[in-house]
Design a binder for these strands. Structure first.
Length: 335
DNA sequence: AAATGCGCCAACCGCAATGGA
DNA sequence: GTCCATTGCGGTTGGCGCATT
């Protein structure tokens, strides 16, 4: 705890208040009121700055303060108010008579945050942790794709027209396309044929939405996937839902797909049929997918998003959470 | 018994807002 | 409009006490 500059200049006391100091301050304010805080210490005979006196009065000496532990009702109210107001402690305190903003803030930071996390609730957003983490992950992708690490092209893209190291995706789709700015990646993105730039989040949310309501089997996508190229991968986001779905499945392939789909099957999740169809298709059409896996930079996150969305439709699954954690690690390491 | 780690919380810091000269 | 003192707020921290090693 440092010393206020004003305290330093005047060699004023700092730190914990002694009972004698408390008594002086209490006596003075009881008789005269606090008035101008900067003059209180002098008039009360204290070697403190006005700011320190004010804080001591508000947080400790005020006669209307409620002492002791927070009740269950107070706890619930704080959570409710924090959800509505955020870290506006002074505003929250006005709704809890006898409690100070500092007291509520400390209670929140030392106790309530942990309680909420244990219940699976994000204490910042007050939403289920699983959703908050998803949004964070998607923000990472969004940021990456809008940073200097990617290059946006316009119009029609032809194979190898940009960089020889790139295995460019379907040449029939028009832009905008996105490519890594550096040549050590072998990838291309096409989000839509519109000229605007949708966020990845929007795209994936849209895909997930269409997938969860679709009962038809996925249609094989056109691919120029090249297993001979190291770390070759592609994510071809086109306009038609089936091929978009396939892209998600492709992204999902690799170390996590098989295991995750097995878990889905064991839990009688209806999504399993979709997975199984896709798996069968991929094995027959592009056998190397199941062997090599696609080490896509964004694969773990897309897989994570897709899988979490699916798991929210049924019950949360601990095993899958572990898988997703692994995917998280892989994703982080790719940066 | 001593050392270490950890959680809690009183109090501090820096900044923004406010108001008066 | 500008300056300056004061007040209010939220984030941060240092010290205390308890638990664990």
């Amino acid at each position: 705890m440092g010393r206020h500059s004003c305290c330093f200049k005047q060699k004023l006391r700092k730190g914990l208040w002694s009972p004698e100091e408390d008594e002086k301050l209490l006596n003075y304010i009881t008789r005269h009121g606090h008035g101008c805080w900067s003059s209180v210490p002098k008039l009360a005979g204290l070697q403190r700055c006005g700011k320190s006196c004010r804080l001591r009065w508000i947080n400790y000496l005020r006669p209307d303060l409620k002492r002791g532990a927070f009740s269950q009702d107070e706890e619930s109210l704080i959570i409710e108010l924090h959800a509505a107001l955020g870290n506006r402690w002074s505003q929250i305190a006005t709704r809890l008579p006898g409690r100070t903003d500092n007291e509520i803030k400390n209670f929140w930071n030392s106790c309530l945050k942990k309680k909420l996390r244990r219940k699976g609730i994000d204490p910042t957003t007050h939403k289920p942790l699983i959703i908050s983490e998803l949004h964070q992950s998607l923000n990472v992708i969004d940021q990456k794709l809008t940073s200097s690490e990617v290059i946006k092209s316009t119009g029609l893209i032809n194979n190898n027209s940009h960089d020889q190291s790139m295995m460019v995706v379907s040449s029939q789709s028009s832009g905008p396309w996105w490519f890594p700015a550096t040549t050590n990646q072998n990838a291309g993105f096409c989000f839509s044929s519109s000229t605007t730039t949708p966020t990845v989040s929007d795209q994936i949310v849209s895909l997930i939405s269409s997938m969860s309501t679709s009962s038809s089997s996925p249609t094989p996508m056109t691919s120029n996937f090249n297993p001979a190229a190291p770390n070759n991968w592609e994510l071809n986001y086109c306009n038609t839902v089936p091929s978009q779905s396939n892209s998600i499945y492709n992204a999902f392939f690799g170390n996590n797909y098989t295991e995750a789909s097995q878990i889905i099957m064991n839990n009688n999740n209806p999504v399993v049929d979709h997975h199984q169809n896709m798996k069968s298709w991929a094995s027959s059409e592009i056998p190397q997918y199941t062997e090599t896996g696609l080490e896509a930079e964004v694969k773990p996150d897309i897989a994570k998003y897709y899988w979490r969305s699916a798991s929210l439709l049924s019950s949360p699954n601990q095993e899958v959470a572990t898988l997703l954690h692994d995917a998280d690690v892989a994703f982080d390491q790719s940066f």
